[in-house]
Design a protein around this nucleic acid. Structure first.
Lengths: 232, 232
DNA sequence: TCAATCAAGTTGTAGGACAACTATTGACTC
DNA sequence: GAGTCAATAGTTGTCCTACAACTTGATTGA
């Protein structure tokens, strides 16, 4: 319940229902709106505060954090790239170059905590925004006990969408960031001649700490805004 | 109170008081340990959950999130670079190349929300770990009503240390990340010949949303590990 | 005019109660 | 003996009420 209210409040904030720096309704009022107790509203608000969207002041109220308007969806919040692109106002797209089952490489096996050679679903994709390539992604999904038919689906749409249908929900990811200059990354005409990329090296985890997907996403420098919201 | 307990619990987690994946005491027990109510313990635990250190399961308990041990201090948590370096087990250092008062440039004025030409403290520093340069930082601190003497201090030690002495505590930062390839960044012998940097373009805010420092930090690719902990 | 005081509103914490869920144990069936 | 089911104790999620601590603006008084 608290998480639903948190998400709903987040969209209300992101759709500018309240101006930046303005006070949102009191916990008491919100409790009335959602027909829940003040405690539940409170946990939702505190979560949004930790994520940096709200500034809660004792004795005063909760205020919408005011930044340079544009971006409130930082990298510290886990969501699929396509969703992020959509939220930023672009039309997301994707082209698949490789979709196949193969044995895990040494590095993949290490990251996914599976024996070397264990089957993984390997993907090479280009991620588009308004038709322009913003990133090339090389992903390895741990198969484990995935049903065979669902593997086909992953080759088409969003990987996270396919996960969700199976009741699999990655809740955390550890991301490493590097600057890369290479001519070997990517393919096709969308390739930048600068060869400059931001490499986002991610490992996605389930609730219980089991890693399910390792991905190396090369973002073309300048075409995607990487924002991190840092809090105490 | 809740924040103190949160911080204390965080150090207990980081010092491996409980093994990864193991259950920590129940909210009821912790409330007893700290002589506070369950509500207070709860808000502390929830904060740690949002930050990704805990995994709280309904009806079961709270578990220490298990990752590849090493890194629990991600970029999403706001702390000074020197502290981060120290936590990673290196000896932090710093050399100042430029420390002066001057008028704000157009960009600085825009970011710090002050009139152009308003005085700022401008710094150019090299940040070291075990004597090796890991980053070159170009910072502009809004002077506003800072006492003159404190400005001198900033030219010597940690900027955040000087802030703290004045009772000024940045609680949030918005960071933008870019991949940069340039030969004009940095100075001295520590300069990498690859010219590859991760640019962390930060803006630090006070509790009330007032920006106090704008910094462009160029991290030498490969010498510093950028980690982000992503949660829902 | 200025300062102190007051009052209303809001968030922070307390305590008790119950609902919802989990994990384990033990009994039962086959 | 193995497997299934039910009971049970332990834990987190939510509710309610109350009060403390703090903020803000209005009021009062010198």
């Amino acid at each position: 319940m608290a998480t639903q209210i948190r998400d709903h409040l987040r969209t209300r904030i992101l759709t500018h229902e309240w101006n930046e720096g303005k006070k949102i309704p009191s916990e008491f009022d919100l409790a009335g709106q959602y027909h829940v107790s003040r405690v539940t509203v409170r946990t939702a608000l505190k979560a949004l505060e930790v994520q940096g969207l709200l500034d809660i002041r004792h004795g005063s109220g909760a205020y919408v954090a005011n930044f340079g308007s544009s971006i409130r969806a930082g990298l510290q919040e886990l969501r699929s790239i396509t969703d992020t692109i959509r939220e930023m106002g672009f039309e997301p797209g994707m082209t698949h170059r490789v979709v196949k089952r193969r044995g895990a490489t040494v590095e993949e096996a290490l990251r996914l905590q599976i024996p070397e050679g264990e089957p993984v679903l390997y993907l090479e994709r280009a991620i588009l925004a308004d038709g322009e390539v913003v990133a090339y992604s090389y992903d390895a999904v741990a198969i484990r006990d995935l049903p065979e038919k669902s593997i086909g689906e992953m080759g088409k749409g969003s990987v996270f969408g396919a996960f969700a249908k199976l009741g699999i929900f990655p809740v955390r990811a550890l991301a490493e960031i590097h600057a890369i200059s290479s001519t070997e990354v990517g393919w096709g005409t969308g390739r930048p001649k600068s060869g400059l990329y931001l490499l986002l090296k991610q490992l996605h985890f389930l609730r219980d700490g089991v890693p399910v997907m390792a991905s190396n996403s090369y973002f073309v420098e300048g075409r995607f805004q990487f924002i991190i919201h840092r809090t105490l």
